[in-house]
Each structure stands twice: as C-alpha cells, then as structure tokens.
Simulated scan of single mutants.
Amino acid sequence: MKVPLAVPNLNGREAEYLQECIRSTFVSTAGPFVNRFEQQIADISGTDTATVTCSGTVALHMALEGLGIGTGDLVMVPSLTFIASANSVRHSGADVWLVDCRRDDWTIDLELAGEAIERHTVAHPAGRLHVESGRVLKALMPVMIMGSSLDFDAHVRFARQYGLRVVVDAAAAIGAEAADGTALGATGVDAVCYSFNGNKTVTSGGGGAVAAADRGLVDRIDHLVSTGRVGTAYDHDVVAYNFRMTNVEAAIGVAQLERLEQFLVRKREIHDRYVELASRHPDLEPFPTPTLGRSAYWFSGLFFTGDDLGRCDEFRSFMVGHDIDVRPFWKPIHLQAPYAGAISTDVSVTDRLWRRIVPLPCSTGITDGELDFVVDRAAEFWGDPSRHV
C-alpha cells in the first residue's frame, strides 16, 4: 500500500468543466470560469471582489505591489514559513525583516516583533524607519501555517499601532475562519492571499488569489496581472505583468470549491486521528490547534518533543520504507542562502521547532484503510503498546 503525502481530490465535476472549456474554446486567460472562481473566493473571504493569479507567490507579490510596497521598504515575515512568503517580498522590490515564531502556535511572535520595532526604528510618514538599514517598514505578513487560524484582532491592532499594512499569507487556509466565524477578508486586514497548488486542500493545478475589502486594491492588482492594458486597443499605462490564471485552471478550481466543506470535514477527521496518535506517546504532540477561529487543517502530523532529533529522521525513513510519503519540514527562511544577510530578530524558537515537525499523509481522498495503515505504522515505530494491527 502506497500512501502519498498530499494529492488532489478530483472526483467532482472537474472533468465536466474542463470539457466545457474545450467545447467553448475558452482555455486561456479569459472565460466564464475565471469570473465564477473569483466570485466564489470573494464569497468565502467575506469580500465583494477577488482576483486570481498564476500562483500563490504571485498573489502575495501583487498584493504588496498593489499596496505601493517596493524598493527601499521592509516587510515583517516569520522565518518559520515556506520560502515563497519571503520570495514574494523580494519580487516586489522590498526586503524581509524575519521574526521568530511563538512556541504554542508556530505563528509570528507579535510581542517580539513589537520589541524589535521599538528598538530599531523611528516613526516615519509611511510606516517605521529602520535606522540601521535606512529602509521603511511598511507591512506585516502573518502566515496561517498549516492552514491554522490567527488572532486577527491582535494582528490588526499591532499594524495600526505602527502604521503598517497587513498582507495575510493564507496559502493553505482556504475555508479557515477568524474568531466568531468571521471570514478572513472581513477581519480588517488589507489582503488575504491563497495558493491553489496541487498539494493544497483546493487546487486549480496551480494558481493563487487575492481577496480584499478594498475594491480599489483588487482592481489595481487585476490591472497589474493583466499587462496593464487600457481599453480594447493595445494601449498599456504601466509596466505590468502577465500573471493571469487561465479559464482551464479556474474550471478546476470552481469544481473544487463546490466541495470545500466536504474537504474541510475530512481534513478535520485526519487531524483528529493524528491528535489521538500523538496522545499515546510521551515524546509526541499534535500540531497546534488554534483557540480562535476555525483552522483549515491543511497539514496535520506529529511534533517530536524528545531529546534525540535523530529519531525524527529515523521515523521518516521508517515510514518511507513502508511506502508512506513522509518528508522533512520546510527549512526556515533565515537558514536559506538567499536570505543569509536578512534583517532578523532572534529566531531561537524557530531553530528549536522546525526539525521536530513531521507532517503525515493528509489528502482529502485518503481512505480509512490508508489512514489506519499510517497510524498503525507510526504507532509501531514509536513503540505504542495500544496500537491495533
């Protein structure tokens, strides 16, 4: 039995909608599915509008550029994230200010970030001037790691205190909610950015999206990703990009979002199985569960709390040896070569965490038998006497 880590669930109307694209010949960057997908995303996000892009990284990049963030600017980003978060900042022309995460929920440590701002910056009309570098801190990019919800109120208060914009990396968090069921785009943040890569809960094969309460921002981003074309002739008023999503990709996305709630229920079931697995061993914890809002539970798995980090590598090898796809977790941004000289807070918590994080298979199409197999093999490795085989 082979169990992949995360593969798309394409058992809905994806094939039907793709055939519709082919019959209509709308296979490129114009077509009815693009509009339908954008409206679905806006509805889920609690905004009037959204715009789709060719990737999640581009969505973040365009949100920053649409907000006027670029050369000479800084964006605070957690070091515990996939490298695309930081890359999007660099693509905009700005640079990152890396911040450690909190031990309890693995999200950006706002208290530490505030201390760094107070220590290293002074007030500036556009944000906060980082004295040593001469750059202006203009934005905060919290990451909804593993699709986990955030304390959005705290992030918005923090941003207002320092005159910053908030661009949320919600790459894996489609369907997540803030406290009291508030949709992500209705929390007071400036933009919420999603990814629809093949391993995400909802996929379009590739692609991303930006949702924002500010219709003007969405319009600016839509203009930027569409070559800056004005009118029906070939007139362009800005150096822009061809970063659009195709109708074919959007067709897949529309079919996927029709089953979003079904996907989220299955993700929660998988999470609960791994919570129960972790409870059987003193050296294991489950991934954090947010106390505010609803998580999308994109990835779930085990967190190792023991002393011998080599056990994590041994566990991954053991699982792979049983045809279960278990991989290392993302290497933090401060350890990546392109960001070796980046401005950074102390990142000791991130250093302690990342090698202990072990995502386990979490495809929404995983069968109960496959999930049992994963749990049993993991229990076998960790020496759990209560396992059922």
Rank of each mutant, 00 (worst) to 15 (best):
D104M: 01
D104C: 04
D105P: 05
D105G: 02
W106I: 01
I108F: 06
I108L: 12
L110R: 08
E111L: 12
E111Q: 09
E111D: 15
L112P: 06
L112Y: 05
G114P: 09
G114M: 12
E115S: 09
E115M: 06
E115A: 12
A116Y: 05
E118F: 08
R119V: 06
R119I: 03
H120R: 05
T121C: 15
V122G: 10
A123Q: 11
H124S: 03
H124K: 08
P125V: 13
P125T: 05
P125M: 07
P125H: 10
P125E: 15
R128L: 11
L129N: 07
L129V: 02
L129P: 06
L129W: 02
L129E: 00
L129M: 07
H130P: 09
V131I: 13
V131S: 12
V131M: 14
V131D: 12
E132S: 10
G134C: 15
R135G: 11
R135Q: 14
R135A: 03
V136F: 09
L137G: 06
L137T: 09
K138S: 13
K138F: 12
L140C: 05
L140F: 12
M141N: 06
P142T: 15
V143Q: 00
V143T: 10
M144C: 07
I145G: 00
I145P: 00
M146D: 04
M146E: 07
M146A: 03
G147S: 09
G147R: 00
S149P: 10
S149V: 10
L150A: 04
D151C: 07
D153M: 01
A154E: 14
A154Y: 15
A154Q: 13
H155V: 06
H155I: 01
H155E: 14
V156I: 13
R157D: 15
R157E: 13
R157V: 07
R157M: 10
R157I: 01
F158Q: 06
F158M: 07
A159R: 04
A159H: 09
R160P: 14
Q161S: 15
Y162N: 12
Y162L: 07
G163W: 03
L164T: 03
R165S: 09
V167D: 08
V167P: 00
A170E: 04
A171E: 00
A173T: 01
I174M: 14
G175E: 10
A176E: 04
E177Y: 06
E177M: 07
A178Q: 07
A179I: 08
D180E: 15
D180S: 05
G181Q: 11
G181C: 10
T182S: 09
A183H: 06
A183C: 10
L184W: 08
G185R: 04
G185L: 02
A186I: 11
A186C: 11
A186L: 12
T187K: 04
T187S: 11
G188N: 11
G188S: 14
V189P: 09
D190W: 03
A191Q: 07
V192E: 03
C193I: 00
Y194D: 01
F196G: 00
N197T: 05
G198M: 04
N199G: 12
